[in-house]
Amino acid sequence: MRAGYLSAPSPLPGFGLSFGITISILSITVLLPIAALVGHGLGIGAADLWEVISARRIRAALALSFRAALAASVFNLVFGLALAWALVRYRFWGRRLIDAAIDLPFALPTAVAGIALTALYAPSGVFGQLLSPLGIQIAYTETGIWLALIFIGLPFVVRTVQPVIEEIDREVEEASATLGARRTYTLRRVILPMLTPALLTGFALALARSFGEYGSVIFIAGNLPFQTEIAPLLIVIRLEEYNYDAATAIGLAMLLISFAMLLTINAIQIWSRRRIGNV
């Protein structure tokens, strides 16, 4: 009988081996480093950590990272929904190409995306030249950071919502129409609530990703302290100064903020699922 004391009895072999491999690799590559980070933080002490974090430059960087990630993710929430809806429901020229291209931000290295966006939107770039006579500057401003974060967060909402839209039963929309509802009413009251859980999941993934993003942002950001300096960059700067304590403090703050964001979104999701009942 192959029944480990860890697992319920199963006739299939390999629990020990597969579980062992999983836990070892997980520990070495993920858990130990995170533990080292937390341990180092504990060594510094809460008071000192707080003192580092409350420095104006660091607070500005954390606030910027959070603000920009939130703004970009909200944009992606709306745009991603529109995109997923168009891809599933409409037939138009280039649809399949766009569908395949949605994942470009996953496949394209972030550094490449960063320099490409900068080349386009810098004042001398193709789009920058068009926009600068209008007084709009994108590269080297907070707008540039949004742009980069919109780029890397784009696929998340689309890819989580798309399959849910595909599975909507058209009968439900027809039922709404036979009951006298106008199309906008159906979209708002019937379709949108059905998509809410998936929208939130996509939003959470995009938010987590863009809050910690580094590669695509640093080229287009301009990196001016207090203005366009994101928190991950500040970690890199502190590390280059061998100021490990400050880097740890910022790192821990980022970790806490991402967990807090994910927990909040999870809570909203549980709440909305409960409202929806047995879906």
Binding site: L37, G212, P232, I235, L239, M254, L255, S258, F259
Partner: peptide, 13 residues
């Protein structure tokens, strides 16, 4: 949900 930079920092530590 961990920033790549924070991951790198953790490895350095």
């Amino acid at each position: 949900s961990v920033s790549p930079v924070v991951a790198g920092l953790a490895l350095v530590l």
